[in-house]
Amino acid sequence: MSEVLDNLRYSEEHEWAQQGEGRVVRVGITDHAQHLLGDIVFVEFPEVGAAVSAGDSVGSIESVKTVSELYSPVSGKVTRINDALEASPELLNDEPYSGGWIFELELDGEYSEAVAGLLDAAAYRELIGE
């Protein structure tokens, strides 16, 4: 059974969004996604400074099984990537909601508006059948 945190918002592509300070949002992949991917060996990050729209492909995640696209669940400007994943991509498997975050961005608007189209924890649990 996959862990789903109540304080996050989720995309149907299995990314999560967490509100930070101000208009900053931290993004990663869900526990469910990392289970499907298997052992993760490489992360291709979005470029810091890039403007992205919700649903844009912004990178990829490579596992021993496959390569999966990474999508931005919200719109904004990428402000930071998780450098720790360059040396230790397995953090995505070990800590998908903490040390395994992938990037941060500054929203174009308010958090509540930006995540309006995302799933809450209950809806995400339903999506993944849990």
Rank of each mutant, 00 (worst) to 15 (best):
E3I: 08
L127I: 01
L8I: 00
D6Q: 14
G55Y: 09
V58E: 04
E15I: 03
T66M: 06
I81K: 10
S75I: 00
D83C: 01
R23H: 12
S2N: 07
Y71G: 05
V64T: 11
G49Q: 11
G28V: 02
E110R: 09
V27I: 11
H35A: 10
S57D: 07
E126F: 04
F103R: 04
P89I: 04
D83A: 08
D56G: 05
D6S: 14
E62P: 03
D39T: 04
A116S: 14
N93A: 13
L85C: 09
L91N: 09
H35S: 12
S112A: 12
M1R: 15
L5A: 12
D94C: 10
S2F: 08
A84S: 15
E126G: 02
A121M: 05
V27K: 08
E3N: 06
K65G: 06
E62R: 00
D31Y: 00
A54Q: 09
E47N: 15
G20L: 02
E104S: 11
P46H: 06
G38T: 04
D83W: 12
I102H: 06
G99C: 09
Y111L: 11
G49E: 09
I102C: 11
L8S: 02
S11G: 15
S75C: 03
L105D: 05
E12D: 13
S2P: 15
G22M: 08
Y97E: 03
R80V: 14
L37K: 01
P73C: 03
F45H: 09
S88R: 15
F103V: 05
L70R: 01
I81A: 13
L92S: 08
V24Q: 12
H32G: 02
G55R: 07
V64G: 13
L118M: 05
G22A: 09
S2I: 00
D39P: 14
S75P: 09
I128H: 04
A116K: 11
Q18H: 09
A122H: 11
W101T: 03
L119T: 05
V48M: 11
Y124V: 02
E12K: 15
E3D: 12
S72M: 01
Y97V: 01
A116M: 05
S75K: 03
I40K: 01
E126V: 01
L70Y: 02
G59V: 01
P96I: 01
L36S: 15
L91P: 09
M1L: 14
Y10Q: 11
N82Q: 14
S57W: 05
Y10C: 05
D6G: 11
S53M: 10
D83Q: 12
D56H: 02
V27P: 11
E104W: 13
E44H: 07
G99F: 09
S88V: 13
T66N: 07
S98P: 13
Q34W: 01
L118V: 04
L105P: 13
H14N: 13
G49F: 11
G109T: 04
G129I: 00
G109W: 03
E47V: 14
G20P: 03
A17E: 05
L8H: 06
A50Q: 08
L119C: 05
V78D: 08
L119Y: 06
R26N: 12
